[in-house]
Amino acid sequence: MKGIIFTEFLSLVEDQWDEDMVDDIIDACELPSGGAYTSVGTYNHTEIVNLVIALSEKSGVPVPQLLNIYGKHLFGRLAHHYPHFIDQSLSLLEFLEGVERYIHVEVKKLYPDAELPSFETKRLGPNKLEMIYRSSRHLDDVCHGLMEGSMEYFKAKGTITREPLEDGTKFIIDLTE
């Protein structure tokens, strides 16, 4: 897993709690990296799992809620660092439709070893999109948070519902514009 996932998670912990919490969760885990991450490094995804579990135990916030919060935070940070990936889209649904065919293609150019989730999209109407998320890491709650963050970014109103599938998760984004 790319280091930016780790550095942004620790940034969220510092912002929402404090530096001591960052140290506490790193100390609570036996991390092969020692908790020293660079945004371009590659680390085992079990390290982020351990950090999230440690944060949940220390903060009392359930893991799914933490992952959702993190997804929203991550979208905001990615939008700040990589606005060209987002600003070319005229709407939320157009942006979400382009994740697989544009953003992930560009990420793979920069990081050929990145293991990215896959997304299949289908328009169900002018304001409704079905998005199938598949990942061996099963970070559905992070994905949901990323979608919520993208809704906020595009100032879109609506709902996101999700349904587990045998090999992924189906999200339905239904805008009320």
Rank of each mutant, 00 (worst) to 15 (best):
W17M: 00
Y43K: 11
V107Y: 10
S33N: 08
F85E: 10
D167K: 14
V61P: 03
R162W: 07
L175D: 00
S150A: 15
I172W: 04
P32Q: 03
G71L: 09
E14A: 08
M131D: 06
G149I: 00
L51W: 08
E130N: 05
G125M: 07
V13S: 01
D174M: 04
T121I: 06
L12R: 05
L110T: 14
H80G: 04
T7D: 13
L31S: 07
L124S: 07
P32K: 12
V40I: 13
K122E: 15
L146H: 02
R101P: 09
E163N: 11
G34N: 08
H81V: 05
S136R: 15
G35H: 04
Q88H: 13
F119D: 09
L165D: 09
E97V: 02
I132V: 15
G3R: 11
I69L: 11
E57A: 04
E30K: 10
D20Q: 08
M147Y: 07
Y133L: 08
Y111C: 04
V40E: 14
L51Q: 09
F119P: 03
E163S: 09
I103L: 05
L116Q: 15
E177K: 01
T42L: 06
G98T: 06
H138F: 00
F119S: 11
D167F: 11
R137D: 12
L10T: 08
E163C: 06
S135D: 15
H138W: 04
T46M: 12
D18E: 09
Y70M: 06
T121L: 05
D141C: 03
D23W: 02
K109V: 07
K109C: 12
L51D: 03
R162P: 12
R101H: 15
A54D: 02
I48A: 10
I25H: 05
M131T: 12
P83L: 14
G34R: 03
S150L: 07
H73F: 07
K128R: 15
L93D: 04
T38G: 09
I4F: 10
L31A: 08
T46V: 14
S150K: 02
P62I: 02
M131E: 10
V107K: 05
M147D: 01
K108S: 07
L78G: 03
I5E: 06
A114Q: 01
E177D: 14
I132G: 03
E120F: 11
K109T: 11
K157D: 11
L175M: 08
G3E: 10
P112M: 05
E47Y: 00
V52L: 13
E8T: 10
E97W: 02
G145F: 03
T176I: 14
L96R: 12
H45Y: 09
Y43R: 02
W17N: 06
N50Y: 05
S39V: 07
L55E: 11
I86S: 09
T121A: 07
D15Q: 09
E57C: 11
T169D: 00
H45D: 14
L146N: 04
V63Y: 13
L93Q: 06
H45R: 08
G35Y: 10
D140H: 06
M1F: 09
S91D: 04
R134K: 15
N50L: 13
R134G: 01
G158A: 01
P164T: 05
